[in-house]
Design a protein around this nucleic acid. Structure first.
Lengths: 334, 334
DNA sequence: GGCAAGCACTCGGTATCATCGAGTGCCAGC
DNA sequence: GCTGGCACTCGATGATACCGAGTGCTTGCC
């Protein structure tokens, strides 16, 4: 454990580095508020902090830079969730007052909101299907041999699959199949699609089977839960090296990786994952701040922001917490 | 007009610069195949090409770099659409053979395909709504006061809007409204939603009205046509300056701008927009290669790739052309 | 023992300067 | 009209010196 003075010094180093992006020397710290000792004393403590792995010195005669462990201590020592500044808070309020209509659109807009608030990239994972029950299903003919299977879930998500049928299907057959499907799925979970019983009529069963396998297949692996990413331009502005930007973009383009990452962080009970804590090498220079959101009290999805390790954690934590809270309310109130 | 030799030299400069990203000097050109004159002659011609605005010299004693006008000449002089190399062509074939199921998913995957083929960012604009007729509409209750209006269009697009109702709506009222809506919309275009007639029953009309205005409002401006963007990481790798990357990402994040840009380029009868031809200042260092695709012979959407001005135009043109052709087939065959 | 003051030392960043060479423009000659 | 030759330009590269922020350590004070 760090004594009070070392903790203050560490905090001051982190704050200063977040602000300046330059290695910070003992002189700056000594003149910082909250530290009332000489630069020599600061130097001594910084040497200890470096030995303990909280700080890193790029080279002799340079200032210190926080390590992941240093950031971790800093984040953990933040005195609880400071409220968001009022300007930001009112933007959040305005956003959710204005928000209406379309779930996906709102989630996508939410990434923009988060990105605006934190000046980093933002991620929103849409509610998982499993939690929602099926409210309605329909089979709609698009052309003689192609039909669309649509399932409306209670959380407002609409799942749809194109079915390519082996034979022309008449209107009434499609209607029969449609109501058979609805009878077995509505009120249940879409993941139970495999258990739809036979109708007794082979023609109907063929159509129903196509729909069942379409829903079943993609549920397995293909279409991962929807992820919305926004503010990548802001993220790009936070890094010096174009290669770092490229690597981060590569990660953000892989929906499955992003979803897994967020879920993993949440599962580990974390709110912040710093650098290597993310477990993804290309994100070594990034930190992730996440929060789950809930619909009707049930955990639904996750939101988060992804920025450089030297991001403004207080702001990010506050923004993510408030947005997740308001988003939960918004999605539950209906 | 350029005489044959100057044209050859210009082509050689562009090709070399695309390859090396370095200003190219007369010596390299003189030793290039297709140019059989000495470097001194090349120098003379290059001076003329520079005066005419095809080339630019970063500074005295440096080689030449193509200007937008130089690229334009190069692109226009490409001898028609060279076919895609067989490796790429077979990847396209494999992709569309494997493609199935979900329209949006396929379009999103298509950006990945294009990006893989051209090593740049790729954009796919989903089919416009206007072209498609409504095949089916439904109102589904999500909770007592919230319903979802779903419209299935003939091109496989599903439009949905959340309706927040002022009063609890019973099952039968919703069903009535649903069939009233369907009766007036199915077979027509969604843009004609404003003309739905009254049913005579005020309660029904209230619900129908909510759906109508939800569809109508967003059709006007809110949700722009869906755009899928992929391969931004590859784009990032093509530039030196992180600031350039940031600016391009900023553009790509604005769906409306992207859609407008593609449409504008197509409307101008272009296939390639080079640098300032895009009309967007932050894209000064970028070129855009586009192609429309069609469904059932009707123009539906647009695909394109966005890379640095020094991209491989032949490959990009071939890839975009082939993918748009196959995509049209794929979307029409059903 | 703990903190501060002083001091020698380190070492990256910046500026200066010379060198190098790719590339140019131009002229004379074939 | 093309080419070989030549003087010239100027960014890139590298060596050198210098500066100064920052460090570690030692000494002295409370």
């Amino acid at each position: 454990m760090l004594d009070e003075r070392k903790a203050s010094i560490l905090r001051a180093v982190v704050e200063e580095y977040i602000h300046s992006a330059q290695p910070v020397g003992s002189g700056h710290i000594a003149s910082a508020p909250g530290v009332r000792v000489s630069s020599a004393t600061v130097r001594n403590d910084m040497a200890v902090l470096e030995q303990d792995g909280y700080l890193h010195q790029p080279h002799t005669s340079a200032g210190r830079v926080p390590t992941d462990k240093g950031y971790r201590y800093f984040v953990d020592s933040l005195t609880g969730p400071a409220p968001l500044d009022s300007a930001s808070a009112s933007r959040v309020r305005a956003f959710f007052n204005r928000a209406h209509g379309e779930l996906e659109q709102m989630l996508s807009d939410t990434t923009r909101l988060l990105s605006d608030l934190t000046d980093t990239a933002a991620v929103v994972v849409a509610p998982a299907h499993e939690a929602a029950e099926v409210r309605s299903t329909h089979l709609v003919a698009l052309s003689p041999r192609v039909a669309l299977a649509v399932a409306v879930l209670s959380n407002g998500v609409v799942e749809k699959r194109t079915l390519e049928l082996s034979a022309d299907v008449g209107e009434e057959l499609l209607a029969t199949a449609s109501s058979h499907l609805a009878a077995h799925l509505v009120g249940g979970h879409l993941s139970a699609v495999g258990t739809v019983a036979s109708s007794g009529d082979p023609a109907t069963d063929a159509v129903v089977g196509a729909a069942v396998s379409a829903f079943g297949a993609d549920d397995g692996q293909g279409e991962v839960d929807n992820v919305f990413v926004g503010g990548t331009a802001r993220m790009a502005g936070a890094f010096e090296a174009v290669d770092t930007v490229r690597q981060v973009l590569t990660i953000l383009e892989q929906q499955l990786v992003v979803v897994t990452l967020l879920r993993d962080v949440i599962d580990r009970g974390l709110t912040v994952a710093i650098g290597s804590e993310t477990g993804i090498a290309p994100l070594a220079e990034c930190s992730l701040v996440v929060a789950p959101y809930a619909v009707e009290g049930e955990p639904a999805g996750t939101i988060g922001v992804l920025g450089p390790t030297r991001m403004d954690y207080a702001q990010a934590l506050a923004a993510v917490a408030l947005v997740s809270k308001r988003l939960s309310q918004r999605l539950s109130e209906g």
